[in-house]
């Protein structure tokens, strides 16, 4: 595997292999010294053109626990402000000797474009509404391991609640969950569902009350104000009344049901209940698993005998 741009690039066997590798990483993360020399001498550059706390830090700790060197680029404090183009930025970093770029950008397709400008591997850490493949892998890892499963979600029902239309997390999750056999139910107002939803092979519901007592996993999405055109929902109060997880609704959850959220949470909007009051909450487990799964992805991409690419473009 050279790049990870989309969950669609991964076969079920690839997914299962990454999750198995993540089990090794979880064992390492539980040690007193949570560090192995596996990626010594490799360099991982985080290139973030959009804000992020957990994904960027999660990838950085993953790289460090495998002993890779890390570089961090954030657009806000870079020469992008002097007008440097994306391509020049990538070629400049490549010339310093980068083995893998971890890329987040507000436009869909940017990570794929970057693969044409560098010989290094590219890992998509979220692009526009398109994909967030490592989030889907860590969510799948969290769900399978919580239920004692290995390689299938057959017979499990997962409701994804909230702003599906603007969510790359939902797109990646839906792809992986359905291919592993889960029944996926999308819960959102019609204005927050993609127009081609009929082709996705999922069910829909128009209120959280229709699903809350029945599902194995309740996956709450963040209300994305920054991507919202005005007018897609009548108002936040109206939204909360039909789509928020409240203490009253939380009491209706099955005893074994998991509650998940990719973060950051909007408390009081989609999460009215305090997740620390929910025995089924896996929200912090998702964060911990994120490091293990990203270690597995970096190890899969960089541990396979690839050699450092000291760059193309310089020698030309």
């Amino acid at each position: 595997m050279k790049h990870l741009l989309s969950t669609h690039d991964l076969s079920i066997d690839n997914i299962v292999a990454i999750l198995d590798t993540a089990d090794h990483m979880t064992e390492i993360n539980a040690r007193p010294v949570a560090k192995v020399p596996a990626l010594r001498g490799r360099t991982v550059a985080s290139v973030f053109f959009e804000d992020s706390t957990r994904t960027r830090l999660s990838f950085e700790s993953a790289a460090k626990r495998l002993s890779a060197d890390t570089m961090t680029f954030s657009a806000a404090s870079s020469s992008v402000n002097k007008g440097e183009s994306l391509r020049d930025t990538i070629e400049t970093l490549s010339a310093m000797g980068v083995d893998a770029f971890v890329v987040r950008h507000k436009s869909s397709g940017v990570p794929a474009a970057i693969t044409q400008w560098t010989g290094a591997s590219v890992i998509n850490a979220g692009d526009g509404w398109h994909q967030h493949p490592t989030q889907a892998l860590l969510d799948t890892y969290t769900i399978t391991r919580s239920f004692g499963l290995k390689d299938s979600l057959q017979g499990r029902s997962i409701a994804i609640v909230g702003d599906i239309k603007h969510s790359r997390v939902a797109r990646s999750d839906i792809d992986v969950f359905t291919r592993l056999g889960a029944e996926v139910i999308l819960v959102a107002p019609p204005t927050l569902l993609p127009h081609n939803i009929a082709t996705w092979g999922v069910k829909t519901a128009s209120s959280i009350d229709e699903v809350v007592g029945k599902v194995d996993v309740l996956y709450m999405l963040r209300m994305q104000f920054e991507r919202m055109d005005s007018g897609v929902i009548p108002g936040l109060a109206e939204y909360s009344s039909r789509f928020a997880l409240t203490p009253a609704r939380a009491r209706l959850l099955s005893p074994h049901a998991l509650v998940m959220h990719p973060g950051p949470m909007n408390r009081g909007i989609e999460m009215v209940v305090d997740p620390s009051d929910l025995p089924g909450s896996r929200i912090l487990q998702q964060v911990a698993n994120g490091v293990s799964v990203r270690m597995a992805v970096l190890f899969t991409i960089l541990g396979g005998g690839a050699t450092a690419t000291l760059q193309q473009g310089v020698d030309a």
Partner: peptide, 20 residues
């Protein structure tokens, strides 16, 4: 499991065995 400690990563792919 010693696969993450090998000194020959660059020579051949690492195959993970069962966890430590």
């Amino acid at each position: 499991d010693i696969s993450m400690y090998r000194d020959d990563f660059s020579l051949r792919p690492i195959v993970l065995s069962a966890p430590t």
